[in-house]
Amino acid sequence: PGLLEPTSTLVRVAKSASTLGIAIEGGANTRQPLPRIVTIQRGGSAHNCGQLKVGQVILEVNGVPLRGREHRDAAQLIAEAFKTKERDHVDFLVTEFN
């Protein structure tokens, strides 16, 4: 995963706060085919992590590719990855390249 995306970065976000704290736009069949981070909320887990940035495009969540998933499906996948108690972190594969 990610080998064909030379600019991609794996970011592990610890569940350090009660919310993930990102807003995303995009998904299959929209102008932005992969979800893009549009906001990072102060005090959220993503902000605490310090490695996610506004403008990054999310390629994978916990190794699951987002390509081809519509917005709600992608959002639900991310929400569930944050909610599950199986892991104390969420892994994002992100790229600056849009």
Binding site: A23, G27, R31, Q32
Partner: peptide, 15 residues
């Protein structure tokens, strides 16, 4: 590319 221009904007979801 023309097709891309006709695609709708996405909604935004806060997670």
């Amino acid at each position: 590319r023309e097709k891309r221009l006709t695609l709708p904007p996405s909604e935004i979801t806060l997670l």
